[in-house]
Design a protein around this nucleic acid. Structure first.
Lengths: 168, 168
DNA sequence: TCTAACTTTCAAAATAAACTGAAAGTTCAG
DNA sequence: CTGAACTTTCAGTTTATTTTGAAAGTTAGA
């Protein structure tokens, strides 16, 4: 397999992986392209490699930056902006975990706690089952949240080759 | 907040959560509905509650069954099929983790290992960076895979109130 | 200030995903 | 067998998401 073939296959694969995770294909492909590129790339480089429009690159690149996966690399004397991706996949994975925790788990916990304001005088079987389910979900979420928090704080130790423990 | 309001809000919320995770809204809503229902429900019950078509219920219900989150509940003497969801959210979460591991992590590892057949004689900087990235990703994936495996096997202990450890 | 080089925005178009509903398929009691 | 009760399929439609491309916005050097 030549380099070009591998590259294509990787970009393809990373793109379709993304779509399973609610990330759009193009964004994942841009990320893949930057991951394997030794140099930082300009908007035009990306447009050409992936055959997509300027606007598309611009918007998805902004999202990648918001996710903390990509940074601008401003070269002195150059007017154009260049972009590069965090290459250490541990760091990238942690970044994603942290962001999703913030964006999804926290709001979900908020909703769940609102749902507990359900009228306590309703003694129907439905209402009881409902309350039980909500409490159960809250419990799972808060434990998962705690575990992810520990995980992201353990990152440094882990990266240093130490032992990672997640304790309930 | 009345029971009906809470119920609606929960189904809504669970539905939109799903879409962040590559799960379609309706499937998540059916799951939510079954989660809070003390009795198992028929296709018609679901159609009516969520105002969706028979075909839609049928297909999404099948997916939920494939995910191992819902089971058929055949009542003696009844021709109709009824459905119920696993109510213990720990079990449900583990089920999802196991399935995603099987469906996504394993194929991804397969692709990555294929990519390593890249011609080793290519000494370009691009090829070197590429190989490095692939190896790094493989490393992260295989560690994540191991951790999830341990997690799902630790499930019983966890559920018994024991300590969960994930060791690198 | 002016303008060329570059970035950002966003309405419209293209594409993809989900949903419907009716027809086809299945099952089983009589 | 037959047909009523139920489930499954899938072509066509609707809805949602993504992409384009050109116009508007920004910036910096002359």
């Amino acid at each position: 397999m030549t380099y070009e073939e591998s590259k294509l296959k990787f970009i393809q694969g990373w793109g379709s992986l993304g779509s399973n995770w609610g990330i759009n294909r193009t964004m994942a492909q841009i990320h893949a392209l930057l991951l394997i590129s030794p140099k930082s790339l300009s908007t035009e480089d990306v447009m050409e490699e992936l055959k997509i429009s300027r606007g598309n690159v611009n918007m998805n690149m902004r999202d990648l930056i918001n996710w903390g996966l990509v940074r601008k690399d401003l070269k002195p004397g150059e007017r154009k902006e260049f972009f590069y991706a965090e290459k250490d996949m541990w760091k990238a994975a942690m970044q994603i975990i942290k962001e999703r925790r913030k964006r999804e788990l926290e709001p979900l916990m908020q909703v769940m706690s609102e749902l507990k304001t359900l009228d306590k005088t309703d003694k129907s079987e439905e209402a009881k089952e409902f309350t039980k389910t909500i409490e159960n979900i809250e419990d799972v979420i808060s434990k998962a949240d705690g575990a992810l928090d520990k995980l992201s704080r353990a990152q440094d130790n882990w990266l240093l080759g130490g032992l990672m423990k997640i304790v309930k």
